[in-house]
Every structure is written in C-alpha cells, then in structure tokens.
Amino acid sequence: MGRFKCSLLFVDDEPALAQLARSLLSSDYELRVAETAEEAQLLLARHDVDIVISDQQLPGLQGIPFLEWCREHTPRTVRILMTGVYSMEEAVEAINSGLAQRFLFKPWRPEQLMNLVRNSARTFLLERSHENLLDELRRLNLELEERVAERTRELEHINRQLEQRNSMLQKMALTDSLTGLPNRRAMDRLAKTEVLRRARVTSPLAVGLVDADFFKDINTRYLLPGGDHVLAWLGGTLMNSVRTIDTVGRVGGEEFMIVAPETSMEGALILAERVRRTVEMSATEFNGDVIRITVSVGMVVAEPDTLVGLDQMRHAAAAALSEAKNTGRNRCVVKRLTMLDGPSAR
C-alpha cells in the first residue's frame, strides 16, 4: 500500500473537538482536520484519504451532502457521519441511502471515537489487501501443486493456511456494522469450515451462543441509541474475553456466537465461564448512567472422535442457551455431543 498508517480527515467546526481528535488519533493515523466541508473538499483533492469523519452541522455545505460528494469523488473512502442523538432519523437515512457507512452520536466519548476509527481502519485495510491476499493464495496453490509428494503433515499445515486466508477474505464483506464483528452469514461460514476441518484432523470443536439478559429493559430505558451503544460495548467485551484462535460474531439482535477450534469439554467450561464473568464484572456508560448487564451462555462441544454436523451443533447450543435462560440467567450451560442425531454440515 505504500503507507503504514491509515489517513483520516476529521471535519468539525468546533475547535475543542478538533483538538481532542488530534490528541487521540494523530499518533496512530495520518490525521488532517478541516472546519468546513469546502476546506475538506480541497484537502481531498490534494491528498489520498482513507477515512472521513464529518459532523452533520457544518457552516456552508452540511455533512450529509458533503458525504454524498465524497461517495462520488472518492468512493473508496470510508464515510462516517457525526450527528446529535436526536438526529437519529437523519443518520439512519444517510446509512440506508449509502451516503454514510457508519455514524457516531454527539457528544461522543474518546473511547467511542477511537474504537470506531480502529474498526473502520481495520475494515478498510482488509478491503485494500484483498488483491494482495488473492495473489498470495494463487502463489500458495502453485506451491501445493509442486509439493503433492511431500509429507501429509506439511500439506495439512499449508491447507490450514489457505483456509485461514479464505476466511479473512470472506470476513471482509461479512461484518456487522454496529459492533464491527462478523455477522450471522460470516459466522455460519466460519463454523461450517471448522466442522469440515475437524473431520480431517480429528480435533475437538466448541460452538457457543451468548445472549444478553433482559435486554428489552435497556431498549425501553435508553431507546435505540442506548441499546446500540450497549450492544457495541458488549461485542467488544466478548471479543476481549476469548482466545486469539476463537471468533465472536453477532448473529441477531442481542445474540452472539462463539466458534472455538481445538477446544475440549474442559476448555469450553473455562471459556464459557470467563465470558459470563467478564461481562458481569464490566460496565459501560451512556448519557451519564453506568450500565451493567449479564449474559447467558449455551455451549456445545464435539470431541475428536464424534461425528457431528453444523446444524446439530447449532441446535444443541441453542438448547443449552435456552436452558441457561430458563434456569435463572447469568449462567453457563455446556454440553458434550456424543452421537449424530441431527443433520450434517451443509
């Protein structure tokens, strides 16, 4: 790419916010600041910019028309709209029409801005690396053809590398916009890949479902902005509570899925309890209120010698989650699959 940092343009006519953005972002990103949309357009004409964050209320050209201009003139730039909480309708319309790809409610906290920029930069870099990854996959495929006669262990290792890179390519377009995590489609594909892989290398696999307890109360009290804030925070908390080889995704409303390769029954019990306890011991803040929630966890484990399919594991994990919620919530239910009595991976 020729650059090691993402470039970022922050557009806001409030000097205090611009200065705060500089202090938070300038060390990790190539940051430029503009006070008006017109000034930002001149900067975009002279410099390559990866991410644009624009306030809606600007002197002269407003934020949404400016982002529409960005979509026409710099379509590869990630567009983020900053707007007040009470301008939710404008933000939703901008997202639905494709003018903005993400939004940030004002007043925002430093960690909200940093997390949003970090997730946007990660998505941008993944998209920009698509072509390089494809070239790498072609090169590895040629190597595989030349090394057919080599040892099975080495061949399996290379196959695993290919699967990991294919998974990366799939995730590029399969991300939940609110949390920055993989969405349902991405998680289904990843889980199917792991089920098929374990049939070849005979390793254990755990699949879990995590559901926020009494989330309707959050939506009722804090409305959609507060509910979205809590979900985004919960997604980050779950991601920080699992291992690097595990994957967390948002698969619906307040429900998340965990895919944990090479995880035995003992490991699944430890993982599920760590996830539950981490959420219970953590908190977030919205509009001055400290918000704490709990989660229920249902997890199922397929041991190396057990023949199972993805549908069976998913249904068993859902049943375990229901048991956790029906027996008091804020608890874990982990079960072992011992036979194939559901459909195989499809």
Rank of each mutant, 00 (worst) to 15 (best):
R3M: 14
R3A: 15
K5M: 13
C6M: 12
V11A: 00
L17V: 08
A21C: 08
S26A: 15
E30P: 00
L31S: 03
L31A: 05
R32M: 02
V33S: 13
V33H: 08
T36I: 03
E38S: 11
Q41P: 00
V49I: 15
V49G: 01
D50W: 03
D55P: 01
G60T: 09
G60Q: 12
G60N: 00
G60L: 11
L61R: 09
Q62V: 01
F66G: 09
R71L: 14
E72D: 11
R76M: 05
T77E: 06
V78Q: 10
R79P: 04
S87I: 02
M88S: 11
M88F: 14
E90Y: 04
E90I: 01
V92L: 13
A94C: 03
A100T: 10
P107Q: 04
E111R: 11
E111P: 00
M114A: 09
N115P: 00
A121T: 13
L125V: 14
R128D: 11
H130V: 12
E131F: 07
E131A: 08
N132G: 09
E136F: 05
L137C: 07
N141I: 08
E145F: 01
E146Y: 03
A149K: 14
E154S: 10
E154M: 08
H157P: 00
I158A: 10
R160S: 11
L162A: 06
Q170H: 15
A173I: 14
A173Q: 12
A173W: 10
L174I: 03
S177H: 06
G180C: 07
N183V: 02
M187C: 01
L190R: 08
E194R: 11
V195F: 14
V195D: 02
L196I: 05
L196C: 10
R197A: 10
R200W: 06
S203Y: 08
L205R: 08
V207Y: 03
G208N: 02
G208I: 10
V210Y: 06
D211K: 02
A212L: 13
F214M: 01
K216V: 01
K216H: 09
T220A: 06
Y222K: 04
P225I: 10
P225S: 09
G227F: 06
G227N: 08
V230I: 11
G236W: 09
T237M: 13
M239E: 12
N240H: 14
S241H: 04
V242D: 05
V242L: 04
R243W: 02
G249K: 04
P261N: 06
S264C: 01
A268K: 07
L269K: 14
T278H: 14
V279E: 00
A283E: 13
F286T: 05
V290R: 13
S296V: 12
S296C: 07
V297L: 10
G298P: 09
G298H: 06
M299N: 04
V300D: 13
A302D: 06
Q312W: 02
Q312L: 09
M313I: 03
R314A: 13
A317T: 08
A320H: 04
L321C: 07
E323S: 11
R329H: 07
R329M: 05
N330I: 07
V333G: 00
V334W: 04
R336S: 11
R336E: 15
T338D: 10
